[in-house]
Design a protein around this nucleic acid. Structure first.
Lengths: 111, 111
DNA sequence: CGAATAGTTAGCCGTATGGCTAACCGAATG
DNA sequence: CATTCGGTTAGCCATACGGCTAACTATTCG
């Protein structure tokens, strides 16, 4: 999951993902809008591919890149779970209950 | 958004988020389960705070850290949007329509 | 007030990351 | 078959990142 969020932490790579949601694209086409050298761009693609967000295969001299939806869903689920837990906590507990919970935990931790 | 996904790309920092969904915690308590030096851990907290995922304030000699839900929701929304676009595309277009779309785009791009 | 507690700051170190250029390889194409 | 096109490999560079220790500040407690 590290490589996963890491892959999304770069604007160029997020842009590639955004481009790919409308369908598979060859490397050159993906590279065009970005003002960086091709080899540099290729590194980004490798990062994306290593993270599982993207796959590609070569047809003739062209490499076609396509998105992989499953990891997106996985990350989304993680974020959703954290947010739900946090918000659920706010719903269930008032400031008082929270205070009690904290004090209880502190007692348990003391050695 | 860079700093944002970047913050989540480290397991220690994700663990901190997971710990914080059950409520605010002092630095020491957050640090305890991680087998790294305190100053190193503090850096992670700073990264989290810089990314907006977390806030903290000092009470006496203790610093209390709490999660910030909004950015979580934002990232979740981005992921969801990408996934929806991708899957929506699969629904709307068959392989044939996809082919046409691609050829059309290629024509338009040719200078 | 002196000692212990909870963070904080500063600085060092090795690896990873994002950028480049130069040179190369294999599939079209004239 | 020579050329061009699309991509790939190799290697260099500077900065960022994750880890450490040592030393310091600011509370709190006895």
């Amino acid at each position: 999951m590290d490589t996963f969020f890491g892959a999304l932490s770069d604007p160029t790579r997020r842009a590639v993902i955004e481009a790919l949601v409308t369908g598979p694209r060859p490397v050159g086409e993906l590279h065009a809008p970005h003002d960086i050298a091709l080899p540099t761009f290729l590194k980004h693609l490798k990062v994306l591919e290593a993270s599982g967000l993207v796959r590609s295969e070569k047809k003739g001299r062209v490499r076609i890149v396509h998105i992989e939806a499953a990891p997106l869903a996985e990350a989304e689920a993680w974020l959703h779970r954290q947010r739900r837990l946090w918000e659920g906590r706010l719903d269930r507990l008032g400031a008082l209950a929270e205070q009690l919970e904290r004090e209880h935990k502190s007692d348990g931790d003391r050695r």
